[in-house]
Design a protein around this nucleic acid. Sequence first.
DNA 1: CGCTCAGTTGAGGTGCCTCAACTAGCGTGG
DNA 2: CCACGCTAGTTGAGGCACCTCAACTGAGCG
Lengths: 254, 254
Amino acid sequence: MFLEPALPSPPAPLARRLVQKLESITDLTEAERQALLALPMRVQETRADQDIVREGDRPSHCCLLLDGFACRYKFTQTGRRQIFAFHTPGDIPDILTLHLKTMDHSLGTITSCTLAFIAHDHLRDLLRRHPRLTDVFWRDTLIDAAIFREWMLGIGRRSAKTRIAHLFCEMVTRLTAVDLVDGNRSPLPITQTELGDALGLSTVHVNRTLQELRGDALLEWEGGVLTVLDWAGLKQVGEFDPSYLHLDPTHFDR
Amino acid sequence: MFLEPALPSPPAPLARRLVQKLESITDLTEAERQALLALPMRVQETRADQDIVREGDRPSHCCLLLDGFACRYKFTQTGRRQIFAFHTPGDIPDILTLHLKTMDHSLGTITSCTLAFIAHDHLRDLLRRHPRLTDVFWRDTLIDAAIFREWMLGIGRRSAKTRIAHLFCEMVTRLTAVDLVDGNRSPLPITQTELGDALGLSTVHVNRTLQELRGDALLEWEGGVLTVLDWAGLKQVGEFDPSYLHLDPTHFDR
DNA sequence: CGCTCAGTTGAGGTGCCTCAACTAGCGTGG
DNA sequence: CCACGCTAGTTGAGGCACCTCAACTGAGCG
């Protein structure tokens, strides 16, 4: 293993958002925090709607999302798209490449993004020196899977209206956990088409269902900002129970 | 940590199926194999349609499936069920309880099963002594998540016929990997209702779609045994590409 | 021999889909 | 500074894949 020294140490701790994200789901020791902040990484700005990693790729780096929104997705053979997850700052959406050599789906940006690439070797070295961080990342992928299950439940068994409301509740909750929500206003810079691709719905039906939710005075959604007008009502329509997000109650509550 | 010595050493290595399952997705050293086989566990026979762990539980043991079929599932608030996964011998469906204290869904038997309960403390001790096994189980949960994604893609974007064919391909492939398939005959002891709950379909529609698949001479399915008459055809109808299962090609091919 | 449970069939309904057209905003280049 | 094109959002009309409800069959079993 050949670990180059970190590039000229950056002014602000780049991995701050990563630490914040991990602390929203678990505790970290000071040593672990420092080790994370010291991770060498290469920063890159990316435009919207760009693939970061594609199905079939065999990456040697993981991608830490520092700023912006990204998503993971895959197409059917007939060209229909399913989005599996929306990712927010602090996430490492492709941490799975540490243990699954070949990507079975793609990762792309939704907005313009700031990305930080971390070499597998550096990550493995970190986990060897701090074995408990392995458990932390493992826990993170277990939560990832829990979110997949909840989406599956929605797509398989819930109405369009409930599905959309549920996703809004989830995004607001997750964004709150990484301190990106201001009062009842949350960033949500995705298109109605992307929302449909995430929920297994057509754009047309998403549009009409959104009109219902707006008509019920539950929310507004304009210019990439979601404003929740009635959180209790939205939770109820969305059948939302945040247990599956396994957020650490000592660091988070809503 | 108080590790009692293993119960009177059983005649046949109980964890044999676990080793076999893990070797279908990765390599194990002899030491790791031995350590797994030496895991202390309490064996229990269970009838069909029994819950093993329920949503909200905080278990202190994991459950290794030695024989039979199990599934994980959750209900919507309106009582509609979604099955998230079918589990086969060698699986530890609730390994997530090592890192997520509270179950966010339920685990139940489909057929009568032989279960082996392993204390979290024993598992943690094993992983401390063999850190690479942590990576192996982490990899296993990553594959679990990949299967969730593939199901999500199906439920969200594929037709009923494709979905059913795809699931059949997946089950046959996974069961082949743990040596439970005899030629073109594979155990599949689930009901049409369970199949529907897994695929987001009604029982009635599952039934009619199965008739199509049988009519196309792709398969037979009777008495809990699936007979694939035309593997190439079934794969094609199901748009099945096994990459997402990340099976170890040195131990497995189909 | 009757109960139960899985599978099957018919009939009618609907939630969401597709296709197509139109509007509004916004960046870009002439 | 306007014209243009592109993208996101919106609306209408018609269709269908899948749904619900309900009844019936057949096998397994106490």
